[in-house]
Design a protein around this nucleic acid. Structure first.
Length: 489
RNA sequence: CGGGGUGUAGCGUAGCCCGGUUAGCGCGCCUGCUUUGGGAGCAGGAGGUCGGAGGUUCGAAUCCUCUCACCCCGACCA
């Protein structure tokens, strides 16, 4: 591992790539746009996944698994849906290879499929084809199913975690008897996403609605959580869609009501992906590397023992043993680094990997009954008594979690601007970055004009919008919505 | 798809214009000794179809032709 990362100030996007590869979160796969999630990065994803998995189970959802392959014809059943995904679908056309007679292989033309198969870019279509079979009566509703899966979207330009051809995610697909119930579900999930982001990833988010042009292909309404990254660009971190009866119509899914009427089912779908790992990196990372929120960090405490010889190593090991047992009994994820590298090397490496707390113990500490704790968030060093460690570590972890959130929130507030004129708007987007909170007349024309001129898009129409006396920043007409504009990933 | 660029060890590169010893260097890797509280030092060592194919030549990493792959900018996407 070469020393250091490219500073954020020099080139943010190179900084980002350096962190991902040097902290061993991920590596490039052999096919362009693909990514190998390495054990350390996968552990981070698993922790995020486990937290959210419990949240949805507690609210009555269950997990299932639907096929990777979807008949091509299914995609076309919902007009807007196919419009949105057609340009990025991987399509399976053949089922066999054969030897080319030399050293390579070629596609066997005899194995051409009658109906081509699409690798899922999202699963609404297969799932609703199945829901048609499973739903007959109001007694079958609501149906609250989630799946953890991979999906493929053949993107032109990819970036590790943020946009890859294949990614891991969770997609929830629910069916309800009434529009209200489906809307409640959409907002319930939005709330869980916000909780996941803020309480676990320590990443403050704006919640609200997408504009017509930014909403999911096939949805009536798309709600989202939107975060601000360290380079002052916005990132969509999760979406929850109210699908109305669009998919029920496309797949003819009806149910009988109590009073024996036939009605179309109402639907939602919602997802978060491995993109959240990228969000964590860009929300908290600094020029030394990652800074991971304790609640989702693969290791919460890394132990760097310091010793001269075999004898002092044994002494340090024995000294550490009861301390580490106490921590582990307290449910803390502890990693011991006994590798034959210098302490300085290990300090730098674990800082790169963002472990929230480092515990150093050396001969001096053994002698004095002490230990050294170092916070990754602030770099602060604490010299503590051996017996205090078990008590102080959980408190520090809690404080680090809070500090990371507060720092991110301060950063976002400092980079959320209100503007009084369109010139001011353009200047802010071009020179300051961050969010601009302002009025919008609700027309596609204004939205498009602003995007073309400034590259900024409406990230979200916040739930707490206030349009009183607000005017559209572009047209000057009375504002239909208060919105947050930003340049986005 | 348009414009530009790059392919030499696991990674980063020198050499190419102007053909000529055993293709050099840094990081990493292996072995040993000394080290270890902020990226250790010394010694020894392993590792190369110079992207691929063809050609010119006594001789090609170097010159020519073809080809493949990747990167950047634009377009596309979010």
């Amino acid at each position: 591992m070469s020393k250091g990362v490219t500073p954020q100030s020099k080139n943010y996007s190179v900084w980002y790539t350096d962190i991902v590869t040097k902290a061993e979160l991920a590596d490039y796969g052999p096919v362009k746009g693909t990514m190998v999630i390495r054990p350390y990065g996968f552990s981070l994803w698993e922790n995020i996944k486990d937290v959210f998995d419990s949240m949805i189970k507690e609210t009555g959802h269950v997990n299932a698994y639907f096929p990777l392959f979807i008949p091509k014809s299914f995609l076309a059943k919902e007009a807007e849906h196919i419009e949105g995904f057609a340009k990025e679908c991987a399509v399976v056309t053949h089922t066999r290879l054969k030897s080319d007679g030399e050293h390579g292989v070629v596609v066997d033309p005899d194995s051409k499929l009658e109906e081509e198969v699409v690798v899922r870019p999202t699963s609404e279509t297969v799932i609703w084809a199945m829901y048609k079979k499973w739903i007959q009566s109001y007694r079958d509703l609501p149906l609250l199913i989630n799946q953890w899966a991979n999906v493929v979207r053949w993107e032109m330009r990819t970036r590790l975690f943020l946009r890859t051809s294949e990614f891991l995610w969770q997609e929830g697909h629910t069916a309800h008897a009434t529009a209200q119930e489906a809307l409640d579900e959409t907002l319930l999930i939005l709330g869980l996403y916000q909780k996941l982001a803020e309480e676990y990833l320590a990443m403050p988010v704006h919640t609200g609605l997408k504009s017509e042009s930014e909403k999911f292909a096939g949805a009536e309404a798309t709600y989202c959580i939107e975060a601000l990254m360290g380079d002052k660009r916005a990132l969509q971190a999760g979406t929850s869609h109210y699908l109305g009866q669009n998919f029920a119509k496309a797949f003819d899914v009806t149910f009988q009501t109590k009073d024996n009427k036939e009605e179309l089912v109402y639907a939602t779908s919602w997802g978060i992906s491995t993109r959240l790992v990228g969000a964590v990196i860009m929300t908290h990372g600094d020029d030394k590397g990652l800074r991971l929120p304790p609640k989702i960090a693969p290791f919460q405490v890394v132990v760097v023992p310091i010793f001269r010889d075999e004898e002092s190593m044994v002494a340090v090991k024995n000294y550490l043993s009861p301390i580490l047992s106490t921590l582990r009994d307290g449910g803390i994820r502890v990693h011991e680094d006994w590798r034959k590298e210098s302490p300085g090397f290990k300090f730098n490496e674990w800082e790169m990997k963002g472990v929230p707390l480092r515990l150093e113990v050396g001969p001096k500490d053994v002698e004095n009954g002490k230990a050294v704790l170092v916070r990754r968030d602030s770099g602060e060093k604490l010299f503590v008594q051996k017996d205090e460690v078990g008590e102080i570590v959980p408190k520090l972890l809690e404080d680090i979690q809070k500090t990371l959130f507060n720092e991110a929130k301060d950063f976002r507030e400092k980079n959320t601007h209100r503007v009084s004129s369109y010139d001011d708007f353009k200047d802010t987007i071009a020179n300051k970055g961050g969010f601009v909170r302002c009025g919008w007349d609700g027309t596609r024309e204004s939205e498009r004009a602003i995007k073309e001129e400034t590259k900024a898009t409406i990230r979200v129409i916040p739930l707490d919008e206030n349009t009183a006396e607000l005017k559209c920043i572009y047209s000057g007409k009375p504002a239909r919505h208060e919105v947050l504009f930003a340049k986005a990933y």
